[in-house]
Write a protein that binds this DNA or RNA. Sequence first.
DNA 1: CCCGGAACCTGAAGGC
DNA 2: TGCCTTCAGGTTCCGG
Length: 269
Amino acid sequence: MPELPEVETIKNELSPHVVGRFIIGAAVYDDKLVRPSPAGEFCHKVLGQQVTSLMRRGKYLMFKLSSGKVLIAHLRMTGSLVINSSDNEKYARAVLQFDNGEQLAFIDRRRLGVMWLAQSKDEIEGKLGIEPLTAEFTADTLAKRLKGRQSPIKAVLLDQGIVAGIGNMYADEALFAAKIHPLKKAGDLSLLEARNLHKAIVKVLQVAVKNKGASVDTYKRPGGEQGTAHHEFNVAHRHGETCRVCGSAIERIAIRNRGSYFCPKCQKL
DNA sequence: CCCGGAACCTGAAGGC
DNA sequence: TGCCTTCAGGTTCCGG
Protein backbone atom coordinates (compact mmCIF):
# COMPACT_ATOMS: atom_id res chain seq x y z
CA MET A 1 0.00 0.00 0.00
CA PRO A 2 1.34 3.44 -0.76
CA GLU A 3 2.40 5.06 2.50
CA LEU A 4 4.88 7.92 2.97
CA PRO A 5 7.98 6.10 1.57
CA GLU A 6 6.07 4.85 -1.46
CA VAL A 7 4.56 8.27 -2.27
CA GLU A 8 7.95 9.93 -1.69
CA THR A 9 9.53 7.47 -4.14
CA ILE A 10 6.82 8.15 -6.70
CA LYS A 11 7.39 11.90 -6.31
CA ASN A 12 11.17 11.52 -6.73
CA GLU A 13 10.98 9.25 -9.76
CA LEU A 14 8.09 11.03 -11.44
CA SER A 15 9.59 14.52 -11.17
CA PRO A 16 12.10 14.23 -14.06
CA HIS A 17 9.26 13.06 -16.32
CA VAL A 18 6.62 15.68 -15.52
CA VAL A 19 8.11 18.84 -13.99
CA GLY A 20 8.30 21.56 -16.65
CA ARG A 21 6.11 19.55 -19.03
CA PHE A 22 2.81 20.74 -20.50
CA ILE A 23 -0.32 18.61 -20.34
CA ILE A 24 -1.56 18.22 -23.92
CA GLY A 25 -4.14 15.49 -23.32
CA ALA A 26 -6.34 14.30 -20.47
CA ALA A 27 -8.71 11.34 -20.37
CA VAL A 28 -10.63 9.96 -17.39
CA TYR A 29 -12.15 6.49 -17.85
CA ASP A 30 -13.65 6.11 -14.37
CA ASP A 31 -15.95 8.85 -13.22
CA LYS A 32 -15.43 7.89 -9.59
CA LEU A 33 -11.74 8.82 -9.76
CA VAL A 34 -12.17 12.58 -10.09
CA ARG A 35 -14.14 14.85 -7.78
CA PRO A 36 -16.41 16.52 -8.44
CA SER A 37 -17.91 14.29 -11.05
CA PRO A 38 -18.24 14.38 -14.04
CA ALA A 39 -14.60 14.68 -14.98
CA GLY A 40 -15.13 16.83 -18.07
CA GLU A 41 -14.42 20.08 -16.31
CA PHE A 42 -11.32 18.60 -14.66
CA CYS A 43 -9.90 17.57 -18.03
CA HIS A 44 -10.73 20.97 -19.49
CA LYS A 45 -8.96 22.80 -16.65
CA VAL A 46 -5.74 20.77 -16.70
CA LEU A 47 -5.40 20.88 -20.49
CA GLY A 48 -2.59 23.18 -21.59
CA GLN A 49 -1.26 23.56 -18.05
CA GLN A 50 2.43 23.31 -17.25
CA VAL A 51 3.47 21.25 -14.22
CA THR A 52 5.71 23.62 -12.29
CA SER A 53 6.55 21.33 -9.35
CA LEU A 54 5.71 18.05 -7.69
CA MET A 55 5.27 17.80 -3.92
CA ARG A 56 4.29 15.28 -1.26
CA ARG A 57 2.43 15.87 2.01
CA GLY A 58 1.58 12.79 4.07
CA LYS A 59 0.34 10.26 1.54
CA TYR A 60 -0.87 12.95 -0.87
CA LEU A 61 0.91 13.76 -4.12
CA MET A 62 0.51 17.30 -5.46
CA PHE A 63 1.16 18.60 -8.97
CA LYS A 64 1.46 22.38 -8.91
CA LEU A 65 0.15 23.84 -12.17
CA SER A 66 1.00 27.08 -13.95
CA SER A 67 -2.55 28.35 -13.35
CA GLY A 68 -1.78 28.30 -9.62
CA LYS A 69 -4.15 25.42 -9.00
CA VAL A 70 -2.91 22.12 -7.61
CA LEU A 71 -3.76 18.65 -8.88
CA ILE A 72 -3.94 16.49 -5.74
CA ALA A 73 -3.85 12.69 -5.97
CA HIS A 74 -4.29 10.02 -3.30
CA LEU A 75 -3.56 6.41 -4.24
CA ARG A 76 -5.32 4.85 -1.23
CA MET A 77 -4.94 1.05 -1.33
CA THR A 78 -3.98 -0.12 -4.80
CA GLY A 79 -3.31 3.00 -6.83
CA SER A 80 -0.13 3.56 -8.80
CA LEU A 81 1.13 6.20 -11.23
CA VAL A 82 3.00 4.71 -14.16
CA ILE A 83 4.84 6.38 -17.03
CA ASN A 84 4.14 4.92 -20.48
CA SER A 85 2.25 1.86 -19.25
CA SER A 86 0.97 -0.57 -21.86
CA ASP A 87 -2.15 0.49 -23.76
CA ASN A 88 -4.12 -2.57 -22.67
CA GLU A 89 -3.57 -1.93 -18.97
CA LYS A 90 -6.77 -3.30 -17.48
CA TYR A 91 -6.97 -1.06 -14.42
CA ALA A 92 -6.06 2.33 -15.93
CA ARG A 93 -8.57 4.92 -14.69
CA ALA A 94 -7.07 8.05 -16.25
CA VAL A 95 -4.21 9.08 -18.52
CA LEU A 96 -2.43 12.43 -18.89
CA GLN A 97 -0.44 13.13 -22.06
CA PHE A 98 2.63 15.38 -21.93
CA ASP A 99 4.36 17.47 -24.57
CA ASN A 100 7.48 15.27 -24.51
CA GLY A 101 5.50 12.33 -25.89
CA GLU A 102 5.19 10.55 -22.55
CA GLN A 103 1.98 9.67 -20.76
CA LEU A 104 1.10 9.13 -17.13
CA ALA A 105 -1.52 6.54 -16.16
CA PHE A 106 -3.45 6.34 -12.88
CA ILE A 107 -3.75 2.57 -12.38
CA ASP A 108 -5.95 1.34 -9.53
CA ARG A 109 -7.40 -2.15 -9.21
CA ARG A 110 -9.74 -1.44 -6.32
CA ARG A 111 -10.81 2.01 -7.48
CA LEU A 112 -10.50 3.68 -4.09
CA GLY A 113 -7.96 6.28 -5.19
CA VAL A 114 -9.01 9.88 -5.79
CA MET A 115 -7.79 12.93 -7.70
CA TRP A 116 -9.04 16.51 -7.80
CA LEU A 117 -8.11 20.04 -8.73
CA ALA A 118 -7.61 22.21 -5.64
CA GLN A 119 -7.27 25.96 -5.27
CA SER A 120 -4.09 25.43 -3.26
CA LYS A 121 -2.24 22.76 -1.32
CA ASP A 122 -3.72 24.15 1.88
CA GLU A 123 -6.90 22.25 1.06
CA ILE A 124 -5.47 19.12 2.74
CA GLU A 125 -3.31 20.91 5.30
CA GLY A 126 -6.01 21.18 7.93
CA LYS A 127 -6.53 17.46 8.37
CA LEU A 128 -2.87 16.46 8.43
CA GLY A 129 -0.51 16.26 11.38
CA ILE A 130 3.28 16.63 11.54
CA GLU A 131 5.41 15.61 8.59
CA PRO A 132 7.68 12.96 10.18
CA LEU A 133 10.81 13.50 8.05
CA THR A 134 11.15 17.18 8.92
CA ALA A 135 12.85 19.03 11.78
CA GLU A 136 9.38 19.88 13.10
CA PHE A 137 8.94 16.24 14.17
CA THR A 138 10.69 15.84 17.53
CA ALA A 139 10.31 13.41 20.42
CA ASP A 140 8.68 16.17 22.45
CA THR A 141 6.06 17.02 19.85
CA LEU A 142 5.25 13.34 19.46
CA ALA A 143 4.95 12.86 23.23
CA LYS A 144 2.69 15.89 23.45
CA ARG A 145 0.35 14.51 20.80
CA LEU A 146 0.11 11.09 22.45
CA LYS A 147 -0.64 12.53 25.88
CA GLY A 148 -4.01 11.58 27.35
CA ARG A 149 -5.03 9.30 24.49
CA GLN A 150 -6.86 6.14 25.47
CA SER A 151 -6.60 4.39 22.08
CA PRO A 152 -3.99 1.73 21.30
CA ILE A 153 -0.74 3.33 20.09
CA LYS A 154 -1.11 1.41 16.82
CA ALA A 155 -4.45 3.13 16.10
CA VAL A 156 -3.02 6.55 17.01
CA LEU A 157 -0.06 6.09 14.64
CA LEU A 158 -2.53 5.48 11.81
CA ASP A 159 -4.33 8.77 12.56
CA GLN A 160 -3.14 11.13 9.82
CA GLY A 161 -4.03 14.15 11.92
CA ILE A 162 -1.29 13.31 14.41
CA VAL A 163 1.66 12.19 12.30
CA ALA A 164 1.06 12.26 8.54
CA GLY A 165 2.10 9.45 6.21
CA ILE A 166 2.33 6.41 8.47
CA GLY A 167 0.20 3.45 7.35
CA ASN A 168 -0.34 -0.08 8.54
CA MET A 169 3.03 -1.52 7.49
CA TYR A 170 5.29 1.19 8.85
CA ALA A 171 3.28 1.57 12.06
CA ASP A 172 3.99 -2.11 12.81
CA GLU A 173 7.66 -1.76 11.85
CA ALA A 174 8.16 1.36 13.98
CA LEU A 175 6.51 -0.24 17.03
CA PHE A 176 8.73 -3.30 16.67
CA ALA A 177 11.86 -1.15 16.39
CA ALA A 178 10.80 0.75 19.53
CA LYS A 179 9.86 -2.51 21.34
CA ILE A 180 6.34 -1.27 22.09
CA HIS A 181 3.26 -3.51 22.05
CA PRO A 182 0.70 -2.24 19.49
CA LEU A 183 -2.15 -2.45 22.03
CA LYS A 184 -0.44 -0.25 24.62
CA LYS A 185 -2.52 2.86 25.27
CA ALA A 186 -0.88 5.83 23.56
CA GLY A 187 -1.21 8.00 26.66
CA ASP A 188 0.54 5.35 28.77
CA LEU A 189 3.84 5.55 26.91
CA SER A 190 6.71 6.72 29.09
CA LEU A 191 8.86 9.62 27.94
CA LEU A 192 11.59 7.12 27.10
CA GLU A 193 9.16 5.03 25.03
CA ALA A 194 7.98 8.13 23.18
CA ARG A 195 11.62 9.02 22.44
CA ASN A 196 12.33 5.51 21.18
CA LEU A 197 9.19 5.55 19.06
CA HIS A 198 10.11 8.90 17.56
CA LYS A 199 13.55 7.60 16.65
CA ALA A 200 12.05 4.37 15.26
CA ILE A 201 9.50 6.18 13.06
CA VAL A 202 12.20 8.36 11.48
CA LYS A 203 14.58 5.43 10.97
CA VAL A 204 11.98 3.06 9.52
CA LEU A 205 10.66 5.68 7.08
CA GLN A 206 14.15 6.81 6.00
CA VAL A 207 15.29 3.25 5.31
CA ALA A 208 12.09 2.54 3.35
CA VAL A 209 12.58 5.67 1.22
CA LYS A 210 16.16 4.54 0.54
CA ASN A 211 14.78 1.17 -0.56
CA LYS A 212 12.20 2.90 -2.78
CA GLY A 213 9.13 1.61 -0.97
CA ALA A 214 7.63 -1.79 -0.26
CA SER A 215 5.93 -3.85 -2.97
CA VAL A 216 3.74 -6.10 -0.84
CA ASP A 217 0.63 -5.80 -2.98
CA THR A 218 0.22 -3.78 -6.16
CA TYR A 219 2.70 -0.97 -5.46
CA LYS A 220 4.79 -0.12 -8.48
CA ARG A 221 7.23 2.70 -9.08
CA PRO A 222 6.55 5.06 -12.00
CA GLY A 223 8.86 3.06 -14.24
CA GLY A 224 6.99 -0.15 -13.38
CA GLU A 225 9.72 -1.49 -11.05
CA GLN A 226 9.07 -2.78 -7.55
CA GLY A 227 10.48 -1.37 -4.33
CA THR A 228 12.60 -3.48 -1.99
CA ALA A 229 11.70 -2.12 1.45
CA HIS A 230 9.58 -5.18 2.31
CA HIS A 231 12.70 -7.38 2.18
CA GLU A 232 13.80 -5.74 5.41
CA PHE A 233 10.50 -5.94 7.27
CA ASN A 234 10.80 -7.43 10.74
CA VAL A 235 7.11 -7.98 11.49
CA ALA A 236 4.78 -6.56 8.83
CA HIS A 237 3.09 -9.37 6.89
CA ARG A 238 5.34 -11.96 8.58
CA HIS A 239 2.63 -13.82 10.51
CA GLY A 240 4.00 -17.14 11.82
CA GLU A 241 7.55 -16.43 10.68
CA THR A 242 10.34 -16.14 13.25
CA CYS A 243 11.45 -12.90 14.84
CA ARG A 244 14.89 -11.91 13.56
CA VAL A 245 15.86 -10.75 17.06
CA CYS A 246 14.60 -13.50 19.40
CA GLY A 247 13.28 -16.30 17.20
CA SER A 248 9.70 -16.18 18.53
CA ALA A 249 6.80 -16.61 16.10
CA ILE A 250 5.42 -13.28 14.83
CA GLU A 251 1.79 -12.86 15.87
CA ARG A 252 -1.09 -11.18 14.10
CA ILE A 253 -4.01 -9.51 15.86
CA ALA A 254 -6.74 -7.19 14.62
CA ILE A 255 -6.72 -3.62 15.93
CA ARG A 256 -9.51 -1.42 14.55
CA ASN A 257 -10.02 -4.05 11.87
CA ARG A 258 -6.42 -3.70 10.69
CA GLY A 259 -3.97 -6.59 10.75
CA SER A 260 -1.27 -5.84 13.31
CA TYR A 261 1.92 -7.87 13.33
CA PHE A 262 4.28 -7.94 16.31
CA CYS A 263 6.74 -10.09 18.25
CA PRO A 264 5.14 -11.18 21.56
CA LYS A 265 8.53 -11.44 23.25
CA CYS A 266 10.22 -8.26 22.01
CA GLN A 267 7.05 -6.17 22.40
CA LYS A 268 5.57 -6.78 25.84
CA LEU A 269 2.33 -5.13 26.89
C1' DC B 1 -12.99 16.47 21.30
C1' DC B 2 -12.37 11.50 21.66
C1' DC B 3 -13.28 6.91 20.27
C1' DG B 4 -14.74 2.86 17.52
C1' DG B 5 -17.13 0.79 13.76
C1' DA B 6 -19.06 0.75 8.98
C1' DA B 7 -18.73 1.91 4.22
C1' DC B 8 -16.27 2.36 0.00
C1' DC B 9 -14.09 -1.18 -3.52
C1' DT B 10 -12.36 -5.64 -6.03
C1' DG B 11 -9.41 -9.66 -6.30
C1' DA B 12 -7.38 -13.43 -3.75
C1' DA B 13 -7.91 -17.15 -0.78
C1' DG B 14 -10.26 -20.56 1.91
C1' DG B 15 -14.35 -23.53 3.17
C1' DC B 16 -17.66 -26.75 1.71
C1' DT C 1 -15.57 -27.03 -10.48
C1' DG C 2 -18.06 -23.29 -8.30
C1' DC C 3 -20.44 -20.66 -5.05
C1' DC C 4 -20.04 -18.22 -0.87
C1' DT C 5 -17.63 -15.76 2.76
C1' DT C 6 -13.78 -13.39 4.49
C1' DC C 7 -9.85 -10.53 4.19
C1' DA C 8 -6.83 -6.75 2.58
C1' DG C 9 -6.38 -1.38 4.67
C1' DG C 10 -6.51 4.46 3.60
C1' DT C 11 -9.91 7.60 4.27
C1' DT C 12 -14.43 9.48 5.40
C1' DC C 13 -18.59 9.47 7.74
C1' DC C 14 -21.52 8.65 11.62
C1' DG C 15 -23.13 7.45 16.20
C1' DG C 16 -22.18 7.27 21.23
